[in-house]
Design a protein around this nucleic acid. Structure first.
Lengths: 253, 253
DNA sequence: TTTTAAAACTTTGTAATACAAATGACAAAA
DNA sequence: TTTTGTCATTTGTATTACAAAGTTTTAAAA
């Protein structure tokens, strides 16, 4: 027989309750950025909890970048820096790689990056152009060093992304850097593919440095599309290679 | 007199060092997902540290969603769920709202959402269409309740985003929900603007439910653009309203 | 034998205390 | 005035103890 009762909701741990109170206060702006929080001793007294539990709550806030503690000075409210977001996105990248995710990832880039290239071409920022030239050179000398090649590849994409002058684009693509590099290491399975990518990057660079908005966007678009196609081919090749032998083995038996 | 010495780099705290070791092990896959970690006691012995420091490291990993602890059972490696990413994005939204960020935010949406609408139209998913109709109805009855109207508005956008079937789009837009709602509350400064938004949403809905890919994309694009334009107007109005009186005051003096 | 209940054990959660290490302020000494 | 030493404050680490939650074992009862 079924009752209409669900399982009792686990009461929140002490540290979590403390955490919520503090977080609310910080988000609401009770303590301004860079202001000092009350000392641990005072907070313990205020909440009526042990230092252990209080510190556990503080630790959680620290982990998320809301506060920083300095030995001998105190605890300070910090503006959540982008680097924390990037750190988590980057951890997500590391933990969620895989063939299907890669395809979604490239699909996502396809939405964003052509526009980045267009804006970079519109900006014609000399610093950007110099940086892109440098990345290209690094790709060129790394044609026989896949990891290094990939790093230069992604660095170039990120430098272009900066020209979009949109913090969301910048943060998100930066955070996904590990995934981009991982994708690169998986997708470039031959030197000829790397050469092809180099040529495509070269075209992107040329369009941007000439301020040719349309061509830059198209070049970026084509580059990503061709990369996706090559990766799809690679996957189907791998699949048939891993399934055919199985069959033969079965027949032999 | 200057020495050639720089400041000593702060040595890492004990808990941070522990944390790095554990994080590496987890990311490298030493412990599989949902596997139990050694007990706190064993880890203390292994690292030769006190339980306090160890637990501080574990707390950090918990905060970031890598592990979960269950009293009486142990600590378990968890696949970093999207909700953690969303939580941080959402905190970022709450802490970083403001006029300039709103404009970048809308600029970002403009890159993503028209494509979402196109895909939703291509899918013609009955469940999606029903949900959109529901959101529309909620918007209609909330024309005199701004917060409620905004919630329905954003819910509709997010439901469309789901049809893109891309986890990056979904996670990121979901995480930015608080910012979207906040933007809505700031940008709809009159009922007429809300009515306008409702009509635009209606057009998006119609195109999607009819499977008209191009129109859906355009409708979403136009909706976002018109929203941005209205918000820009609102900003300049506010600016002149806040700067003019100042001038007059100065003259009076 | 099977089922149930109780006891024993393991493991995380919370508390209390003590001391170490870092920082800043101030007084003493040169 | 500048340097040096001292002390108070505050966070960092360690230790111990017990509470609470969950698991396993044991034993009694059916």
């Amino acid at each position: 027989m079924q009752t209409h009762f669900g399982p009792l909701t686990n009461p929140e741990k002490l540290s979590q309750r403390i955490c919520h109170v503090l977080e609310d206060a910080i988000v609401k702006g009770t303590y301004g950025v860079d202001k000092r929080l009350p000392t641990e001793a005072k907070l313990c007294e205020t909440f009526g909890v042990s230092r252990t539990s209080l510190r556990e709550a503080l630790q959680h806030l620290k982990s998320r970048g809301l506060i920083e503690s300095i030995a001998g000075r105190g605890m300070f409210v910090r503006a959540l820096t982008q680097s924390f977001l990037e750190r988590d996105l980057s951890l997500f990248s590391k933990l969620n790689d895989g063939e299907d995710v890669f395809l979604e990832f490239q699909d996502f880039r396809l939405l964003i990056e052509p526009e980045n290239a267009r804006r970079a071409a519109a900006n014609k920022n000399p610093q950007c152009i110099a940086a892109l030239k440098d990345s290209l050179a690094r790709m060129d000398v790394s044609l026989n060093d896949l990891p290094e090649f990939v790093v230069a590849d992604i660095a170039m994409h990120l430098r272009i992304a900066r020209e979009a002058e949109n913090r969301f684009i910048e943060i998100i693509l930066s955070g996904l850097k590990p995934m981009g590099e991982d994708y690169g290491r998986h997708s470039y399975d031959s030197t000829s593919l790397m050469r092809k990518a180099y040529r495509e990057h070269e075209q992107i660079y040329r369009a941007i440095s000439q301020g040719d908005v349309t061509t830059a966007g198209n070049a970026m678009h084509d580059h990503l599309v061709s990369s996706i196609e090559d990766y799809r081919k690679l996957l189907s090749k791998k699949k048939s290679a891993s399934s055919l032998p199985k069959k033969r083995h079965a027949i032999k038996k």
